[in-house]
Simulated assay, not measured.
Amino acid sequence: MGSKKIYKPSQHRKVCLESCRCLMMATQEEAELCFPQLNSSCRKPTLHWSKAVLLKTVLSFISLVTVVLNLLIIISISQFRILHTTTNILLLSLAVSDFLVGLLLMPGEILRSTTCWFLGDVICSVYFYLGCQIVCASIGNIVLISVDRYVAICHPLYYASRITLGRVKCCIGLCWLGAGFCSIFYMKDDLIQPGRSKSCFGECMLVLSYVTGTTDLILNFIFPVSIIILLYMRVFVVAVSQARAIRSHITAVTLHHSVNLATKRSELKAARTLGVLIVVYLTCYCPYYTYFLVETNVTSIENASFLIYVFYFNSCLNPIIYALFYPWFRKAIKHIVTLQILQPGSCDANLL
């Protein structure tokens, strides 16, 4: 009887199969790296491509809307002379900071959180420096707006003499200058040595020390929020009493008193609008700083990107609030869209 032959894979074939498998795994690992040629490269974000496209599309749209709406605010207040009031100059400064958030910070955060960072360590440090300066300036503008409304509502007889265009412009300049110095304090180590905080290549990271983080929490959140809340509590009490006085005397006033009442209504409406502005500001900023109290190194956590998006989304909501509550903004948009601002004398148009 002939013996039956049984086929067994040779040892050489086993080695080949394992070598091919190892080669495929190494190739796959290299494809997942930001810089395959570097041993200390970061891994690419693991978000599915469809979710990544959707996320980038939504965030890019929000960034575009933020830029366009705040640009309309800037053009409106800059173009029409009737809008050159102290309150509107403060709104103009806030719109500039919001415009820069949409133009620079939002795209930078989209790039930083959804893909590898290919722009280098220097650009990363500059990005965080600009982020600190713009955010600090925005918070300072909110505080200045609160002070402006406090004086207008609680001390109306002194408003015209104390809150002048010259003083407001000087305060805005000091606000932006102070924001620049604060940013240098926060970023001094990263500006001297870019990339010192990153753990691998392809990462853009900012790690604040305990002292720097605590200082940021106090100067950019606790201190300004305390001032804003105290001022608006006082404004709210006075505004309610003035509104009651207007309703009780609305039926028996002279023409002169009617003008005064109309002025008071305008001030109260401005206070209400800016009150909504403050509430939205607190709603967007509180999650980030509240989380900071729990986790000091918030910028190194995956959830930090969502908190930063909410943080920046305030810049998109501000001009929407203007459009809802300020009729002059809607009229100004109409002049801009229909190109009436190109006509001679358009800067003297009456939008009120």
Score class of each variant (00 low, 15 high):
185 F>P: 07
323 A>N: 02
223 F>R: 10
194 P>W: 02
156 P>H: 07
32 E>K: 12
130 L>M: 13
131 G>A: 13
159 Y>K: 15
31 A>S: 11
4 K>L: 15
192 I>L: 12
23 L>H: 11
280 V>H: 00
75 I>S: 00
284 C>D: 07
150 Y>L: 15
38 L>N: 01
3 S>D: 12
126 V>G: 02
129 Y>A: 04
42 C>L: 09
151 V>I: 14
161 S>F: 13
294 V>E: 09
270 A>W: 00
305 S>T: 11
262 A>L: 12
51 K>E: 08
321 I>Q: 00
312 Y>C: 09
42 C>K: 02
336 I>D: 04
276 V>M: 04
141 N>E: 11
214 T>F: 10
162 R>T: 14
142 I>L: 01
27 T>P: 04
269 K>Y: 01
66 T>F: 07
82 I>A: 08
241 S>E: 13
85 T>L: 05
251 T>Q: 03
108 G>A: 06
22 C>R: 13
344 P>Y: 05
183 S>R: 02
264 K>I: 09
138 S>T: 01
27 T>I: 13
262 A>W: 02
1 M>E: 14
176 W>L: 05
350 N>K: 14
253 V>Q: 10
16 C>Q: 11
170 C>T: 04
62 I>L: 14
241 S>N: 15
252 A>E: 10
148 D>R: 00
218 I>W: 03
217 L>N: 08
136 C>H: 05
127 Y>H: 12
15 V>L: 10
323 A>H: 01
327 P>A: 09
171 C>W: 04
153 I>S: 01
220 N>Q: 14
345 G>N: 06
187 M>K: 03
94 L>P: 00
99 F>L: 11
202 G>S: 09
133 Q>N: 07
247 R>Y: 06
130 L>R: 02
43 R>V: 00
311 F>P: 03
272 R>F: 06
77 I>G: 01
303 N>Y: 02
327 P>W: 11
190 D>T: 13
252 A>Q: 12
189 D>S: 05
247 R>E: 10
349 A>V: 08
274 L>F: 01
64 L>Q: 08
230 L>Y: 14
77 I>V: 13
167 R>A: 01
35 F>G: 05
307 L>H: 01
115 T>R: 07
9 P>K: 05
113 S>V: 03
65 V>A: 14
100 L>I: 06
339 L>D: 05
189 D>Y: 05
8 K>F: 07
